[in-house]
Design a protein around this nucleic acid. Structure first.
Lengths: 116, 116
DNA sequence: ACAACTGTTATAGAAATACTAGAACAGTTC
DNA sequence: GAACTGTTCTAGTATTTCTATAACAGTTGT
């Protein structure tokens, strides 16, 4: 389980960590019952603070994507199913957007505003 | 031309202003040649600072969506065409996401991470 | 029982970002 | 030339992000 982060991005690190997990869940690389690597482990390999990772995990918990308990860790829930169902559609849309020369930020912003 | 902003949102105001314009362009409510309301006008009606609106406009200019010149204002360019082309797909995706119980932030984040 | 692991909570501070404020400047339009 | 536009400058405040350290409490495996 690999969590990617771009230190040069203007997107907060905690948001990138959460986004990375979401993308893995959507792609089927994370299934219900799977455990995320411990926050301390991720913090160590990314060379960021423990709390930064925990904030990302708590965001995922707030969305219902993971269950968290001390001692046990963060475990993926059944709530990832909707993400997986949307995966193909999201990939198709992003490929179309790329072909049209749009940036990730622009498309994400457009999606968010259209959703409201 | 109406620009909407949610003061309670955690999304920066300038980003919301830019997103609002993008959504209008994608929906065909803004066409090439149309002029955005002046930054001072928007700042007044939203009760925010002039610079906050200008930062949003400059973001749109950086994306090539508008041309800006002093005295003339911000004018929509042909670059809105890609947004309009994607509009139906974005609407379809967001409706599917809503039916699955996803939040705008979650979907936007997923789209952005999938795009990378 | 115990050791080693988990997330949780608390406090604190540094750094970066967002927002506001006021003023002056320089093109464009009518 | 009057009234509008974005541009640039300086400055300060508030909020957010990230770090740092420490202790706490539940879980797991030996």
């Amino acid at each position: 389980m690999l969590i990617r982060v771009d230190p040069a991005s203007d997107v907060p690190i905690f948001a990138q960590v959460a986004a990375s997990v979401r993308a893995d869940a959507a792609a089927g690389r994370l299934r219900p019952g799977d455990r995320l690597p411990s926050a301390r482990e991720v913090a160590g390999s990314l060379e960021v603070n423990l709390h930064t990772v925990l904030r990302a995990y708590q965001e995922l918990r707030d969305e219902g994507l993971v269950d968290m308990r001390r001692g046990r860790g963060a475990v993926v829930t059944d709530a990832v199913a909707p993400l997986a169902q949307l995966h193909d559609d999201v990939v198709a849309l992003t490929e179309r957007a790329r072909a049209l020369g749009l940036s990730p930020d622009t498309l994400a912003s457009l999606v968010k505003e259209t959703f409201r």
